[in-house]
Amino acid sequence: MLGKLFKHEFKDTAKILLPLNLALIGVTIIGMIILGLKVFDFEGVAMGFLAASMVFFYVLAIIALFIVTYIYLMIRFYRTMYSDEGYLTHTLPVSTFSVFNVKLLVSVFWAFLTMILAVISVIALFCTVLQSAGELTSSEWNYVLYELEMFFDKSVPALIGKCLLYMLVSCLSGLLMIYCSISIGQLFNKYKVAASIVTYIIIYIVLQIVNLILNMHRSMQIMTNSLSYAYQSTYDDVSIIGDIFASSMIQSVVLIVIYYITCVYISNKKLNLT
């Protein structure tokens, strides 16, 4: 049954999300060809303007891709769980728990995939530009990596691993925050969508305030560091960055657990289909 849930969830979401991600890959490849083969000579004002606007639209397209992906996943979650279609979803001979988990995992898969593809796309285009300008020789590349390792005091694979973990956690907490807001919003008998949005905004504001209070101490530390004579090397800052990273990871994980429990509880016990 779990397999069938995954199958249908993927089949359904792929209709919209697969073409979007393929488009991103396509745009990246085309961009690499244009930049790599120096099809255009970006000299002169007109060509410079063209280059700038291409970069602008590229950035815009990536942002749009994220927005469309998240909005699509959000609407789909609401539609299949809490609107009329919920009558079918919740009368399938599968536990609500499985239904929710499958939806969550499949959404995280898409959000994570899009994020990785976007990062790869940016890096690939950036490297192509450097390489075609002859500025990226292998020795310079090694130097950059070495500097990175020195700065963060970590090996490159470890850094990449850490970034991936951070991306995964942020996808998970981002989606769960949305799903949690929708689950709370549907508890209202009217204006469920509006209630969901308001819930989201409230959670967002509360998180900002909590963050502000939590980070107050650390920002003070950075400020005093930078002002004081004791300020000697950048490595202190790095450890503080590491600190911020660790604490925001912990915070995200705690939030993920809270959102998750809320979602599962509501979809299991507090369905309010009208």
Partner: peptide, 13 residues
Amino acid sequence: KKVISYLPDHTYL
């Protein structure tokens, strides 16, 4: 749910 076939009072597909 395996043995109940349910027709809600509105369209649900």
